[in-house]
């Protein structure tokens, strides 16, 4: 090839192969990435009011445990997830009820109320929370989560507002 401006047959093949290969790679590669990370974009977000118990059964100074399960559709399967918490009554006013989520803020184990320790104890790493959910001891980074919204029905049943993650 004497003229250096002219593309040689070999170089033309190389460049063409590169371009076509790159196109095919992109056309299949990019969708593949979205295919893999697709579940991260899915949103649940279903909302519901969930009854947790009668207000008259909840005693001052004794956290009232409750639990409920929610069925979620994950991919092609329905999965039941369990949730739980404690209603802490402070007075006769149902609005002052403090409703704690029993999911430990450290690594998501379930805390239990211990009468002896007068605290919520997490069985996994010995975390201790006060009746108000404040961290007393152990590794948790923050206080127990709270179910912010609740209401009382005409029959005296406490319901909490629940939104799926």
């Amino acid at each position: 090839m004497s003229d250096s401006h002219e593309l040689s047959r070999r170089d033309f093949i190389k460049v063409t192969t590169g371009i076509v290969g790159g196109l095919i790679g992109t056309m299949i590669g990019l969708p593949s990435v979205f295919y893999l990370i697709d579940p991260a974009f899915k949103e649940g977000g279903k909302e519901a009011w969930i009854p947790i118990g009668k207000f008259e059964d909840m005693q001052v100074g004794m956290p009232y445990p409750f639990s409920f399960t929610r069925v979620q559709v994950n991919g092609w399967e329905r999965t039941a997830s369990s949730f739980g918490g404690y209603a802490v009554r402070k007075s006769d006013d149902p609005d002052e009820l403090l409703i704690l989520n029993s999911r430990c803020t450290h690594l998501a184990c379930t805390v239990n109320w211990s009468v002896d320790a007068n605290a919520f104890i997490c069985p996994c790493h010995d975390a201790k929370f006060s009746m108000e959910g404040e961290v007393l001891d152990g590794p948790p980074p923050r206080a127990l989560d709270i179910y912010e919204e609740h209401r009382i029905t005409e029959d005296g049943i406490i319901e909490i507002f629940f939104k799926e993650a």
Partner: peptide
């Protein structure tokens, strides 16, 4: 294989999910 399940209970549903529920599943 990221989504497919080789079990009689789930194989059909998982393929269905790949086709309709996953981004670009129909393409792959």
């Amino acid at each position: 294989t990221v989504y497919y399940t080789p079990s009689p209970d789930h194989a059909y549903d998982s393929v269905n999910y790949i086709m309709e529920g996953v981004a670009f599943g129909w393409l792959i």
